[in-house]
Every structure is written in C-alpha cells, then in structure tokens.
Computed example of a mutant assay.
Amino acid sequence: MSSAPIGIFDSGYGGLTVMKDIVNELPQYDYLYLGDNARSPYGTRSFETIYHYTLECVKYLFSQNSHLVILACNTASAKALRSIQQKDLPNIDPERRVLGVIRPTAEIIGIHSKTGHVGILGTSGTVNSESYVMEIKQQFPELTVHQEACPMWVPLVENQEYDSDGADYFVKQHIDSILSKSNKIDTLLLACTHYPLLMDKIRQFVGDEITILSQGEIVAKSLANYLKRHPEIEQKCSQNGTRRFLTTDSTDDFNAHANVFWNKEINSEFIDL
C-alpha cells in the first residue's frame, strides 16, 4: 500500500513524547517523525530563524507525501505555525494542513482551573512569544495566565539528568518562582515536550493540590477529533501502522537519546536538509 504518513516535527527528541501519545490514541496510521537535531535547540533562536527552519522541515515532510504535519515543538508552534498556515500553505498546497500543540491545550486548560489562575512552564522562546497567553485569552478571557521560562530543564532531560539529585535545584527554583507569582495558581501546564520526563520532580515540589497538565494526551485526543471532523484530510492519511524516524544529525546519538522519550528501541535515518 502507498504511504502517506502523518508527519510529526520537532526540533529534537521531545516531540517523541507527543508522538507516543498520538500513536497510542491512533495506532492505525502511518507516522513519519523528523527531529532537526543538527540545529536544536530552537528555544533561544529568533522568530525568523525558527520560521525558516520549521518551514524547511515541513516542506521535507510534504515531499515524503505527508498531507498532515503536526508541529510537536512548542517553540515552532509559537513562532512559525501561523506564518506557515497563512502565508506558505496557500502557495505550497492549500489541500495540506499543518497543526500545532498550543491551541489544543489552550482550548481545555480553563476546564481544569477553579481559581481562574493558571501557570505556563516553557522555554524562553515559548514564554517570550506570549503565544499561550494570547491563545488562552481567546478561549478563556476570564483566566489569569502566569508564565515561567525554565531554560535549564531541556538540558537536564537531554543529558539524562532528569531523575538525578542535581535536577532538584533547577526544578524547585522555577516551581517556587511561578508559584510566588500568585497563591491562586491551581493548574500548571508543561509547555515543552521535554518536561514530562521531569514530572516526578515537579510533583515533588508542587504538591497534590495543583493539577499538572502534559500536552501529549491532550494533543492526541485533539488530533483524533480533528480527523473525525475533517474526513477529507483523514482519507489522505495512510493506515499501515508504520513508524519512521528521521534526524538531521547523528543517528546513533538520536537512537540513544530517543529511547528515553519513546521507551522503545528506535532505528532512525539521517537526512541532510
């Protein structure tokens, strides 16, 4: 059967946490994951650079017959998605779709908060873009959104220090900081695909009274709903149950790190953009 996989893009490994939940929710489809590891991290780069890199990767996934691409990277969703949707897709192919991870989360976060105060934990790029603040305000204008950039959390995860005693300092530092912004915060969103690996540490310093939301399951359910509402897109996604993994950097390095996020052995393929 011909392959028309759902494309999943991330700047590195973190998007695998989203892909894992998507595959659990929708195992029948083919998936093609692309990690731009050679140019990560994206979180500290300019809007223009992130847009250029993301568009290049989206075009590559399109060239592999993906009709639907998910930007599993929060930074790319924050800084590139809207431009790609509005400016590029009409010229590339108006029948294709690119979706992000911010809107699905913004659409449900208010349901979890009783106090009307929510916190966003993300990279500097995501926080500085204000994308979550704007999206949440559109969905739940009554919510007060507090943000905290956690620049050390991604390196902790990628260096497999997320469960070490040394991680305690950096996790506690940012949890204390965001909770000091309001004693009414009752919901925290992990707005980076790496952060679920720090969940145990985060819970340790947050306590049981605060709800912690991870994006993977939210995005997976949103995608399932999207495909039901858009049969014209769903019919273009092949269903052979295959998974392929591409990286712009060392496959050995990707395979070794990806196991942490995917919890299964991965054999990736190198591509040169």
Rank of each mutant, 00 (worst) to 15 (best):
M1N: 15
S2R: 11
S2C: 06
S3N: 09
P5S: 03
P5W: 08
G12P: 07
G14I: 04
G15E: 00
G15H: 02
K20N: 04
D21S: 12
I22T: 05
E25S: 08
Y29A: 00
D30F: 12
Y31S: 01
L32E: 02
D36P: 05
R39I: 00
S40R: 03
G43Y: 13
E48G: 01
T49G: 04
T49M: 07
H52M: 11
Y53N: 08
E56Q: 14
Y60E: 01
Y60D: 08
L61D: 01
H67M: 09
L68V: 09
N74K: 06
T75W: 05
K79H: 03
A80D: 08
R82T: 12
I84K: 02
Q86R: 14
L89D: 14
P90Q: 07
I92V: 01
I92R: 03
R97A: 10
V98W: 15
L99D: 01
T105A: 10
E107N: 11
I108L: 13
I108C: 08
H112Y: 13
T115K: 06
G119M: 03
I120C: 07
L121R: 12
N128W: 11
E130F: 03
S131Y: 05
E135C: 02
I136L: 03
K137C: 08
K137H: 12
K137D: 00
P141R: 10
L143Q: 14
V145R: 11
E148M: 14
P151K: 10
P151R: 03
W153H: 02
V154T: 07
P155V: 12
D163Y: 07
S164F: 11
G166M: 06
G166I: 05
G166W: 13
F170L: 06
V171I: 06
Q173S: 09
Q173Y: 09
H174M: 00
I178D: 00
L179V: 01
L179S: 00
L179Y: 00
S180Q: 10
N183I: 12
I185D: 15
C192I: 11
T193G: 09
Y195V: 04
Y195I: 02
Y195A: 03
P196Y: 12
P196V: 07
D200S: 11
K201W: 00
I202A: 07
I202V: 14
I202M: 03
G207Y: 12
D208G: 05
L213T: 13
S214N: 13
G216C: 06
E217V: 15
K221S: 15
A224Y: 05
N225L: 01
L227E: 08
L227K: 08
P231A: 12
I233L: 09
E234P: 02
Q235M: 10
Q239P: 08
Q239I: 13
R243M: 15
R244C: 10
F245P: 05
L246P: 12
L246R: 07
D249Y: 13
N255I: 15
A256K: 04
A258Q: 13
N259I: 05
N259S: 05
V260W: 01
N263I: 04
N263Q: 14
E265H: 12
I266M: 13
S268D: 00
E269N: 07
